[in-house]
Design a protein around this nucleic acid. Structure first.
Lengths: 123, 123
DNA sequence: CCAACTGTATTATATCAGTAATACGCTTTG
DNA sequence: CAAAGCGTATTACTGATATAATACAGTTGG
């Protein structure tokens, strides 16, 4: 079962986007694998304290990206094809790297400053 | 004059928040210093292609944080007290570091993976 | 079988970000 | 002084996010 342990919503970013990202990251990390059962819309919405429609919005995006298989009446399952993982992994890493590099450079940090910062903040 | 060269808005995050962050980062980096003239609401809004009210929202926040001095009819100026810089610097760095560490760990990266990623993406 | 659960759809409402148009009073500059 | 530019305020509108209440059809387990 796909677990949402460790999911902590940040405000300012739409919840459904955060759900999508969380699932993608867990696929990339290998925590979530092909065939994993996804919690139902109703169950997850109750767990996260959001509306079922918000979860549905996230699930629909995952389905459109070929990462989730849904059929009326039946449970939903994570669907991970190897090529998807490579694509998503590249996508997420590029994005995270580009963002942090842009942010830290804008603050005038050198590469060494940046590396040291990550080093000391890695828990 | 406070320059917005290098400002590139990302979608998904409110523009006024991005303006505030951009100014703060430029203060932290020393590019923007005490007494720098800020572009008027109308000029900056035209430059960024957004509504004057959006810029006003950002400027109001900067003013409330003691980083901008505005008076009806007159130009606005950046107001940087040394203690502000230290505070903002700490604030922004902690935030950037915490975010990237959280993101990369969620994708299953080790500290070494993360450092290598930053290293190769630093331009 | 059938009740419980599933995915899916619809409609209504509230809030917020951002746009748009306009107005007013103050400061600065030629 | 007067015009241009400035900060500030107000109102109305759109679109996106999210909630809420239902409803319906398909699947599944006891």
């Amino acid at each position: 079962m796909l677990s949402f342990n460790g999911f902590a919503a940040v405000d300012g970013i739409p919840i459904y986007i955060q759900i999508v990202r969380f699932v993608k990251r867990n696929i990339v990390s290998g925590v979530t694998v092909n065939g994993d059962e996804a919690p139902s819309r109703r169950v997850l919405s109750a767990l996260l304290g959001v509306n079922p429609n918000t979860v549905q919005k996230a699930y629909r995006i995952l389905e459109e990206e070929g990462l989730l298989s849904s059929h009326t009446g039946a449970k939903s399952y994570i669907e991970v094809k190897p090529e998807s993982v490579a694509r998503i992994r590249r996508e997420l890493l590029e994005d995270a790297a580009a963002t942090v590099v842009k942010d830290l450079k804008e603050m005038g940090l050198t590469k060494e400053d940046a590396l040291a910062l990550i080093e000391t903040h890695w828990t």
